[in-house]
């Protein structure tokens, strides 16, 4: 899998953007430059338009929110957000979503870091088998594991708890976490381990005192992705929860076939879920890019 190594710069996301535009690299502003710029503006606009349209729909007064033909001028109002907060259990669902995301991120890293370290340092058929299995598991149809989990969670009495959803997501995202972290570990020279161990560190101490501090960007990247997956998850949460552990994506889906005011509230919920991740796309961009590029097995 050559792509895993070709872009080994994952620890150092490229920062060449700040270079002063030299005369050689950027000749004059030609028609071509403007054309590319224009196309990109259009593409960006198209990519953002569903979010913009929803933002408009939820700030319209309810009676014109879903009129056809649509209205473009209106008095903005926050009623949908207030209603969402007051008439639904949105706050609970939001807490559930965050609890699941935080729990599963911490657990995934605590479990995944040692495993990824070991896989990057111990070349053998066992590593090969584990990595291949991880890739296959990553590609599994979710229902093949989630339906038995549903059965199991009922039998164990943990159905409809945030714990069950978090545990399921730790397992489901473990192959991805291991792959990503292993690729980051593989970029740290083995000589460093050897030096630390010569100085009297045990294997665990080496991992804790030498490797993990060096892995900062890698851990952050993996953490961001696992958090994002948990935050986005619909299918697993839909199967494993009912009312008390319901997450925001599941809540939004259950609102779909309902009345218009409820739909507008679902739109408000969607906006509340979208705004933080949009901010995130700008702030944590270099980590997202690094994670996607380090040959991650993610789509």
């Amino acid at each position: 899998m050559t792509t895993l190594q070709e872009h080994g710069s994952a620890l150092e996301p490229s920062r060449s953007d700040g270079e002063p535009p030299s005369a050689k690299r950027r000749p004059r502003k030609s028609a071509h430059t403007y054309l590319v710029g224009g196309v990109l503006v259009l593409v960006c606009w198209a990519m953002v338009s569903p979010v913009l349209w929803t933002a408009m729909a939820v700030t319209k007064p309810t009676d014109v929110a879903f009129l056809n033909p649509p209205v473009f001028t209106y008095e903005p109002t926050m009623t949908a957000f207030v209603d969402l907060w007051q008439t639904t259990l949105f706050a609970d669902y939001l807490v559930n979503t965050l609890v699941v995301a935080v729990l599963s991120t911490i657990a995934a890293l605590v479990i995944g870091l040692p495993a990824a370290y070991a896989l990057s340092r111990f070349p053998s058929w066992v590593s090969a088998v584990l990595l291949v299995l991880a890739l296959v598991f990553r590609a599994l149809p979710r229902f093949a594991v989630v339906l038995p989990m549903y059965d199991l969670s009922r039998a164990l009495g943990v159905y409809d708890t945030t714990f069950a959803v978090a545990a399921a997501l730790v397992a489901i995202n473990q192959p991805f976490s291991i792959w990503l972290l292993r690729n980051f570990f593989a970029e740290i020279p083995k000589e460093l381990d050897e030096a630390a161990m010569l100085d009297g560190c045990s294997r665990l101490a080496t991992l804790r005192r030498v490797m993990i501090p060096l892995m900062g960007p890698g851990i952050l990247t993996a953490g961001i992705f696992v958090f994002l997956f948990a935050f986005q998850e619909y299918l697993t949460a839909n199967i494993l929860t009912d009312v008390s552990a319901r997450t925001v994506p599941v809540f939004i889906a259950t609102q779909l076939g309902q009345t218009l005011p409820m739909l507008q509230q679902a739109g408000a919920a969607a906006m509340l879920l979208t705004l933080p991740v949009v901010a995130f796309a700008f702030i944590a961009q270099r980590y997202l890019v690094a994670g996607l590029n380090s040959g991650s097995v993610k789509g």
Binding site: P50, A57, Y234, A253, A270, T274, V277, L288
Partner: peptide
Amino acid sequence: LGFLLISYVVPNIVGATMFSWLFDANFG
């Protein structure tokens, strides 16, 4: 890149809901 990443970080189900509202005559 920030703009282009938005659709990737929004949960699929939420993105699809927003997308459906662009097309649905019942919802203008």
